[in-house]
């Protein structure tokens, strides 16, 4: 590699890294401001440009604003974990079926069925939300965690199927055939031999499920009243006509922290090369 290319490469990486980190740094510094640190124009350095205060951080844990992010955090965690787990189970079963058997439903073949799954993501959320409201009302599940889990599964299942089909397609059929020749029941073959070989694929699928489940605001917001509040809702509840930038920043940073840990975890798989086949 030439020197010029190397310089260019590290410059590019540095520029992009600052672009990525910029908003986080800005949110971090803003979270320690108060009205006087915001109103006069942009300020950056605590103690130099403005007088730092921890008010924003106090406020999100049940301080004066009456906002507390702890319960919403736990709700989001439950919903995300449950919905991801259900989607992964249903999704990998369906994906395995689609990669191993030939289906025909009316005129739909395998590829069309996969497209049916994926096409659910094309639906604008607004098409779904009002009918979902009536569905959950009918089932008595409005404003409840089970209700939100069901809805979230509808959003996550397509992603799980999409990731897993590609993945299973890359696992040689010989593996399952061998297991079945040994007298394994197809489900047993799937659980004992295929799944252990699919951890990287499951990791990717789980990550996508976690990301989209955790970050859903649209549905959680409209299908709950007072009992169940998720974390994005708690953050958005701070976006008032006088937005307290400091509290908003503190709440945002708190809200995204769990998924940053997820990024570290995913990267570990990536570096080991385990994710290799997952997206082919």
């Amino acid at each position: 590699m030439s020197r010029a290319y190397l310089t260019f490469k590290y410059a590019f990486i540095a520029v992009w890294a600052s672009f990525v980190a910029g908003p986080f740094v800005w949110a971090l510094t803003t979270s320690f401001k108060d009205a006087n640190g915001v109103q006069g124009g942009a300020t950056y350095l605590p103690w130099v440009d403005y007088k730092p205060t921890t008010r924003g951080w106090q406020d999100i844990f049940g301080g004066e604003g009456g906002v507390n992010v702890i319960q919403p955090f736990l709700n989001s965690l439950q919903i995300t974990v449950l919905a991801s787990a259900i989607s992964l189970v249903l999704g990998s079963l369906a994906a395995y079926g689609l990669s191993r058997y030939t289906y025909r439903i009316g005129r739909m073949k395998n590829a069309d069925i996969v497209f049916f799954f994926v096409s659910q993501r094309i639906m604008p959320p607004i098409v779904l939300v009002i009918p979902f409201f009536f569905l959950l009302q009918f089932a008595g599940l409005l404003d409840s965690i089970p209700g939100l889990v069901i809805v979230t599964v509808a959003l996550l299942l397509p992603i799980a199927v999409w990731v897993m089909v590609d993945f299973f397609n890359n696992i040689p059929r010989e593996i399952d055939e061998m297991a079945m020749l040994d007298g394994c029941h197809p489900f047993a073959a799937f659980v004992r031999t295929i799944l252990p070989n699919s951890l990287p694929g499951i990791t990717v699928a789980a990550m996508f499920c976690a990301v989209f489940g955790w970050n859903d605001f649209f549905f959680a917001f409209r299908l709950t009243f007072t009992e169940v509040q998720t974390l994005p809702q708690a953050v958005v509840a701070l976006n008032s006509s006088i937005p307290p930038w400091w509290t908003l920043s503190a709440a945002s940073l708190f809200g995204i922290s769990p998924l940053v840990l997820l990024a570290v975890w995913v990267e570990r798989y990536l570096s080991r090369g385990n994710l290799a086949g997952a997206v082919r």
Partner: peptide, 20 residues
């Protein structure tokens, strides 16, 4: 008692405070 109000702070904060 179930209450809905505007975002914090405008009207939202007094609602929270008086609810408490």
């Amino acid at each position: 008692l179930r209450v809905i109000s505007h975002a914090v702070p405008v009207m939202g904060e007094p609602t929270q405070l008086h609810a408490k």
